[in-house]
């Protein structure tokens, strides 16, 4: 954690945005390690893939499109900002004074709602991974919302920069471009990655279906799947990879994913339960839950992968 703090300060000081982005990636990665230490394996998985992977790539593409150096402003150091931050921090510290000590098993947080998840989800939902049970079933509606958030982001990016202006000439200070150029030359990299990418995709599928039992699930799978494609695009060529997954297809998958999730909910509704009640999907409660979660997670994976790919390619296409 101390390392994270140091990284944070370094980000604040550093002017070279390229370095800043790299450090941010590092920051995410460290937090992921921390999550593992704190027993949050699912979260660690996601943070590593999303925070350290996708977000970093997006930031790098942005830098390539804009500028990689933060101008040193001669303006006075914003003291008000420092003051505001110190005050906010002080308030937060004040708030922590009445918190239960770290790791205290008797803290109220562990006693009101959660015991039921831990004790009963085995019978009610029938999955060993409690995180998945809560995510997809007990609080499945939140997750639906979350899928819609990423859906919104993908559509939004399409709307904002989906249509590059024609006839625009610009100097390409393309960090990513250069990186890609370097990598393209590197035969070893190309061969290794060609071998690696199928494995990444297979691994993504594994994470997708394994989420019920161990760490993993639709999110992680979707992100990893997308990461495979993005890697391909980085090493080979955006246009070729675009041909593998045309934008129409990703767009369709994007829509189908969210509709699958919401659709499962509606089916539950039609079969006499409330929205997102999976128990009514099959004769037996746990079987229904299982089926529902499987479908829903697939919807999540589909949307997340499609969304990530859409966002990345939209950014990447800007250069041309």
């Amino acid at each position: 954690m101390v390392f994270m703090a140091v990284t944070g300060f370094a980000v604040a000081r550093l002017r070279n945005l390229f370095g800043v982005v790299m450090l941010t990636g590092l920051f995410s990665l460290m937090s992921a390690v921390l999550y593992v230490v704190l027993d949050a394996v699912d979260v660690a998985f996601t943070e590593a893939a999303v925070g350290a992977g996708i977000a970093t790539v997006l930031m790098l593409s942005t830098l390539a499109l804009t500028s990689s150096e933060e101008r040193v402003s001669e303006a006075e150091k914003p003291m008000w900002a420092l003051g505001l931050v110190v005050v906010t921090g002080a308030v937060l510290i004040y708030g922590t004074l009445d918190m239960a000590p770290f790791g205290d098993a008797y803290a109220p947080i562990h006693h009101h709602v959660v015991p039921r998840y831990l004790e009963k989800s085995g019978q009610e939902v029938g999955l060993p991974n409690v995180v998945t049970s809560v995510l997809a079933s007990y609080r499945g509606y939140d997750t639906l919302g979350e899928v819609y958030v990423i859906f919104t982001a993908a559509c939004g990016v399409l709307l904002i920069i989906g249509r590059p202006k024609r006839g625009r000439r610009r100097t390409l200070r393309m960090l990513v471009g250069e990186m890609r150029h370097g990598m393209r030359q590197n035969v070893i990299l190309r061969v290794v990655s060609k071998l690696l990418i199928p494995f990444i995709l297979v691994f993504a599928l594994y994470v997708q279906w394994h989420g019920d039992f161990g760490p993993g699930g639709g999110f992680q799978a979707g992100v990893i799947f997308a990461a495979g494609f993005i890697l391909y695009a980085l090493i080979f060529d955006v246009d070729t990879s675009r041909m593998v997954v045309p934008s129409e297809v990703t767009r369709l998958l994007l829509a189908l994913g969210v509709m699958l999730y919401a659709g499962v909910g509606v089916v539950g509704l039609l079969r006499g339960g409330n929205f997102l009640n999976y128990s009514v999907l099959a004769q037996e409660q746990t079987a229904g839950q299982h089926l529902g979660i499987l479908l829903v997670e697939f919807g999540v994976g589909l949307t997340v992968a499609a969304a990530m790919i859409t966002i990345f390619f939209t950014f990447a296409r800007q250069e041309h």
């Binding site: 639906l144 819609y148 859906f151 559509c155 767009r251 994007l254 829509a255 189908l256 969210v258 509709m259 919401a262 659709g263 509606v266």
Partner: peptide
């Protein structure tokens, strides 16, 4: 929510 992807 369902109508949004339909538009897409």
């Amino acid at each position: 929510l369902l109508a949004a992807p339909v538009c897409l």
